[in-house]
């Protein structure tokens, strides 16, 4: 348990550093450290599937963020109404803590989840689907609708990005641009 708390403190420190740093590249790298610690947490909690996905997606997001922030001066909104901003932030923190204290009382304790449906998956997953990896059998057989929804979300995201950033959408009036391959 103690290593979990060490990693949790490391993640919180990394997130604070990422928010507070002025240099964008350093902040991106701090976010990467948070993601790495999160993937180790998943490994300690015995969820290697999630750990692999977290690590790989973190690398991809880091590359995109580094390419997007390198050699680019983005405006930093550090000045202005700091009193109002701090007041709103404090109000929201208090609100979330109050709601969280009410909600988290009803959750089952850490490490002892409700096993009503998942107990059936663990007992009968191998016979029903034939897949040794139980996570695979859940996401592609028992809960395949969720995976279909996730695939649809990714498809929509790709269509959205490609239709917003393609060249033909950003040409000026009267300008002729050939769509390049």
């Amino acid at each position: 348990m103690i290593e979990l708390y060490v990693l949790l403190v490391l993640m919180i420190i990394g997130a604070l550093v990422a928010v507070e740093l002025k240099d964008l590249l350093s902040s991106v790298i701090a976010v990467g450290a948070v993601g790495l610690a999160l993937s180790i947490v998943f490994l300690i909690l015995k969820a290697p599937d999630v750990a692999i996905t977290q690590l790989v997606v973190e690398i991809l997001a880091l590359i995109i963020l580094i390419r997007a922030t390198l050699k680019k001066d983005l405006p930093l909104a550090t000045t202005g109404r700091w009193f109002v901003n701090t007041l709103i932030t404090a109000c929201f923190i208090v609100l979330f803590l109050a709601v969280g204290m009410k909600c988290f009382k009803d959750l089952p304790a850490f490490g002892e989840p409700l096993m009503r449906v998942s107990g059936t998956y663990i007992k009968e997953g191998l016979q029903r689907t034939g897949a040794v990896n139980l996570v695979s059998s859940v996401i592609l057989d028992f809960r395949a609708y969720d995976t279909l929804g996730e695939a649809t979300i990714l498809f929509t995201a790709v269509i959205g990005v490609l239709s917003i950033v393609r060249r033909i959408g950003r040409k000026k009036v009267g300008e002729e641009i050939k769509e390049e391959e």
């Binding site: 290697p48 599937d49 750990a51 692999i52 996905t53 790989v56 997606v57 991809l60 897949a131 040794v132 990896n133 996570v135 695979s136 059998s137 996401i139 592609l140």
Partner: peptide, 15 residues
């Protein structure tokens, strides 16, 4: 090996 070992379509596709 997504159905035998950790991983699967999403992680492998991103790799």
């Amino acid at each position: 090996h997504g159905h035998l070992s950790p991983g699967g379509g999403f992680a492998g596709g991103v790799i």
